[in-house]
Design a protein around this nucleic acid. Sequence first.
DNA 1: ACCCGCTCGGTAAACGTTTTCCGAGGATCC
DNA 2: GGATCCTCGGAAAACGTTTACCGAGCGGGT
Lengths: 333, 333
Amino acid sequence: MPDKRVTIKDVAAHAGVSLATASRALSGTRPMSEELRSRVMASAAELNYQVNLLGRALRQQRHPVVGLSVPDLENPFFASLTEHMSRTMRAAGFELLVSSAGGSVEAEAEGVRAFLGRQVHAVVIIACDEAQSAETVQFASSKALTIQFDRRVEGAPATFVGCDNRYGMDLIAEHILTTAPPAKEVIFVGAGAKSSSARERLQGFEQHFPGARTMLGTFSLAWGITAAEQLIAEGTHNATLVAAADIIALGLISGLRSHGIRVPEDFRVIGFDGIGPAAFAHPPLTTVRQPVEDMCASILDLVRADSNDLDPGASSPHGKQVLHYEPKLVCGT
Amino acid sequence: MPDKRVTIKDVAAHAGVSLATASRALSGTRPMSEELRSRVMASAAELNYQVNLLGRALRQQRHPVVGLSVPDLENPFFASLTEHMSRTMRAAGFELLVSSAGGSVEAEAEGVRAFLGRQVHAVVIIACDEAQSAETVQFASSKALTIQFDRRVEGAPATFVGCDNRYGMDLIAEHILTTAPPAKEVIFVGAGAKSSSARERLQGFEQHFPGARTMLGTFSLAWGITAAEQLIAEGTHNATLVAAADIIALGLISGLRSHGIRVPEDFRVIGFDGIGPAAFAHPPLTTVRQPVEDMCASILDLVRADSNDLDPGASSPHGKQVLHYEPKLVCGT
DNA sequence: ACCCGCTCGGTAAACGTTTTCCGAGGATCC
DNA sequence: GGATCCTCGGAAAACGTTTACCGAGCGGGT
């Protein structure tokens, strides 16, 4: 049985002061006599008052909220990113609005529109589709500070924050070449070119292993399993599998092991991302871990910088900017 | 370079009509001459106008938004629930606000307060802690329609939607007794009693296997692995392991297999929840699947019913209500 | 000719805040 | 004792909408 709505007007009346005084007492905007302040506070507590953030945001013309659009929460990497963003933003006094596109470009667009309609301070978007999400990113950029995260789309004037996928592949290649017999075949199990990360990881791999075999599917457990079965069906006995994401790598391992194949003795599997389950696998998956905390902190910095951007022109240019973070190799075996 | 803010006033001026007309043209509240309407629409498009939902919500005194508080997005079951809720609510015209507590009761409380401050239409909460979250649920109930999801707390006047954990355990027990040699030891690997689901599943198990061994940890992959190693260290060779959640079951399997133990030949593992990766495991994990879609639909119904609750007294009582949904057995092996 | 009712545009109030401006009262300084 | 400054409370405007109310125009029924 929800209360009747109680507004600051009720609090003011109950405490016998004006609206202005009540507002100042509650928000501490201006110093005031201790006696009055505590009287207002007491009234607020008694009436179970809670500020209406909509009214506040409307009046103040700012809304300490950032919207995060992710392609799909069922992907543990994105779920983890969301969790980290939530923590980071909350600690800095920003609320996080999350919208999952569920893989649909339309849902993504709708989610971002809802963010903008709610006057979010910034939009952080992990684009669904390198091509089709461009319009949405463009639109968001025209309305609010927009930051692309993890996946980049072409030609949008929005700062990008993500990890250096090429460098990650350098690390993986170096690891393979220094620890494995080069005679072993190296196969890339990646994802189709719908996202910049899929593309960059593939390109990074091809640069180090020109002519090597590549198998492309989606960023999912299911694809890893399918790829494993395909390899087994073909009679491949022994190889180093480089997965474009941990979730694929886990699928590969599951698929291989369920057919009695030993990992890492027969097949070696290497991942990318550094999600939690990878570390818990036995033996732990060798992967390159994205510095998620650093990237979130970087996004927070961008948001904060824009917050203080009340003197236009005096701060960082609003143009495109690319912030790459270096992943680190995490050796499991 | 974000636009100057463009309001409906600008659109009205540009189209040469009054605010009221502009508003009516855009929202279609009242029929009007086609010529005027299209002129307003054209102006809005040209100016790249987008409605300010804060102003609208303030005026209309309703905000088609529901807030969802989850304990931890890194748990794939909750991530999946979130994904489903997002889809369900979006399709019905409600926006979903997500807050992850990251396991912290304080963060949970803060998130819910933020929801309420934003005048959400309803709060859906998966409580972090059966005891400590009670206050938060109570508070939410006093301010808005509040629905407890999956985990219940004591004595809060909020409707509960979740699956029938006892019945799920009935299904599992029946499955075990009809398909396995009863001589095999049955062990429960669950989670501590911080949540109603952990408790109910444990109690359901104990009812069917009185005196059987129970090991309690957390709802996590790590705990599954730890438990597996503990069993191996103790020299257990052969048993049926009933996990309180798929995520624990997957940890068990991973832990067992990495020591060369065959599943399901040596150890049989059964899960609970029906998350995606369980189905993709090889062989697929036997588990009971929670009817997530039905539960989300049920929540939507509750939210909608309350939406139409403009004639107070004529509709469903706002009192406590418990909606149990029956999970279904999904046989992997 | 008159009135009724309908259509459709505008004016202004309202939603819950914050904040600017004003003014009353008191202290301080010459 | 007056001028000046500071402190602190209140009245009212503003944020961007929607919507209740009003009124003008007009067609049609008696």
